[in-house]
Design a protein around this nucleic acid. Sequence first.
DNA 1: GTCTATATAATGATAGAC
DNA 2: GTCTATCATTATATAGAC
Lengths: 187, 187
Amino acid sequence: MESAKSRRRDSEATAAAIVTAAAQLFSQRGYDGASTREIADRAGVNVALISRYFGSKKGLFEASVLPMLSIKSLLSQDMATFGARIAGYYFDGLPEKAADPILAVIRSSGNEAVTAKARDRLRQQFIDAIAEKLRGPEAKTRAAMIIMTVSGVDLMVRVLRVVPEHEDERAALRDRLARDIQALVDG
Amino acid sequence: MESAKSRRRDSEATAAAIVTAAAQLFSQRGYDGASTREIADRAGVNVALISRYFGSKKGLFEASVLPMLSIKSLLSQDMATFGARIAGYYFDGLPEKAADPILAVIRSSGNEAVTAKARDRLRQQFIDAIAEKLRGPEAKTRAAMIIMTVSGVDLMVRVLRVVPEHEDERAALRDRLARDIQALVDG
DNA sequence: GTCTATATAATGATAGAC
DNA sequence: GTCTATCATTATATAGAC
C-alpha cells in the first residue's frame, strides 16, 4: 500500500482519477460539452496530463467510456429476476450523478467519429450478450426489444427526467416495467 | 406568388430556410456539435442573419426544435392503429436525414440550459397528450410506458443504429413492437 | 511525473458597409 | 435585407522547464 504522498506521483492513480472524472462528465454533458480542462479540474490534475496519458480527448473517451459498456454483471445472475433487477436499478434509488456509459454514448452520439466504436461495443456487449442468454424462439428480436425498452427507461429517467413524483405511480411504473421486460426474457 | 429573385430578399423565406437547416443539423449533431456557420451554409445564407433573426444560437434552437415537438398528428387518427403506425414509421422507410426533434433533444441533453424548455414541452406534448387519449386504468403509467418504448425505438434505430439487416428479422421486430405498443394503448 | 506557457484553430456574436 | 470584417472567448494540443 502506498502513502497518500507517494500517490501524488503515481501515474497509475493519476490516470485512474482522470478516467473516473471523464466518465462522469461525459455522462453528464456528452463528448462535446465536457472540456478537457473541466475533466482535469475534477480529477485534481493538470490538463496537460490528459494528452500525456491518453493521447487525445478522443483517446480519453475510449479509455473511460468503452470499458464500462458491459452488462455482464446483470446477466451473470438468475435471469428469472432480470426484469425486476433492471426496473429496480432505475426506480429504486435513482443515482443521479453516477457515471452512466449508455448515457455518455447517447449524449455524444452527435459526434460520429467518437461514438462509432462505442456503438459496435454496445451491440456486442448488450444485444448479442442478451440474445445468448435467452431461450426460446426469436431470441434476437426479443433481445433487441429488451435493449430498446431499457434504453427507453434510461432516456426517460435520466435524459428527459419525467419519472412520476407520486410514490404509488412510480411503483406502478416500476412493476409494469419489470413485468414487461421479464416477459421478453421468458419468451 | 413571388419570383425566385424577390425571394432572395424575403426575410420570411430566409428565416424559414435557417429553421429547416437548423432542425436537421441539431438532430444530426446535437446543439454543441452543430455550429452556426454550418447551419447558415446549409441554409444558403449568411451567418450574421442567425443573430439578426433569432438573437442567438439558443434562440434558433428554440425556434427550430421546440415547435416540432408534437405528436398531435399521430394522436388525431384512430388509436386502434397507433401501434402499427409508430412501428411503421421507424421500420418502413427509415428516413435517415430527416429532422427528428426528439433526437435533437436527446443529442443536446448534455446542455441543461438549452434543453430545459424542450423537456417541459416533451412532457406536455407527448406524455400528457397520450395519457389524455387513453381509456382505462393507469392511463398515466401506460402513457409513460408508451413514450419510453417509442423513445427506446428512436434510440435504437436512429442513435445506436442497430436495426436487424435481414428483412424477416426486421419485420418480426416491427410487428412485435406494434403489438406491444398497441397493448399499452388498449390497456 | 507534473507543471507553465503557448500555438493554433474554431466558436458565437456584433458593428457597420452596402 | 444581406453582407464583410472582426472581436472576444474558448477549445485541444504541445514544447519545454522543473
